[in-house]
């Protein structure tokens, strides 16, 4: 199984200036090879945002969708050059985006990984470390680290 959390899946210095543009860039990222139908995947992520926005706190958003437009789960992380407006829980603009795409049927192993990342993000210390992380390797390490 291809590892999902690797520095290759981190893009720094994204220049997108809107939420939709960020999602578009991340879905079309060359490492997101699991996506068979990018337009559909982008639509699915945007639909989820319209339903319940995924903006979290301190400039972090976790857009995600479960869609037949992807063949394998993919995690793509983007750090923006300039924060963009996003509906977040604390009103902050977003500069760190963790996008998760999963196929219609998700394997338990992948769900456990997502649950692990989700659990990490519920920890304030992890959020602080994530904001401070500057390189792809550091960002991945923060998300993987267990307490």
């Amino acid at each position: 199984m291809t590892p999902l959390l690797t520095p290759n899946n981190v893009q720094l210095g994204l220049t997108a200036t809107s939420m939709a543009a960020v999602i578009d860039q991340l879905v079309r990222h060359e490492q997101t090879e699991a996506v068979s139908a990018p337009d559909e995947a982008i639509a699915a992520v945007l639909a989820r945002e319209a339903d319940v926005p995924t903006g979290f706190v301190q400039g972090i958003a976790i857009p995600h969708a479960k869609t037949a437009a992807v063949q394998h789960p993919a995690i793509v992380i983007g750090r923006l050059a300039q924060p963009v407006a996003w509906t977040t829980l604390d009103g902050s603009a977003v500069d760190t985006v963790i996008m998760i795409l999963t196929p219609a049927a998700v394997a338990d192993t992948h769900l456990k990984l997502l649950a692990m990342i989700a659990g990490q993000l519920a920890d304030e210390a992890v959020i602080t470390a994530l904001k401070a992380a500057q390189t792809p390797a550091e960002i991945i390490q923060v998300l993987e680290e267990d307490e």
Partner: peptide
């Protein structure tokens, strides 16, 4: 529980 049953469910549980 959340719509996709992926992230928010587990973030809320952990929180």
């Amino acid at each position: 529980a959340c719509p996709a049953g992926l992230m928010h469910t587990f973030m809320a549980a952990s929180g």
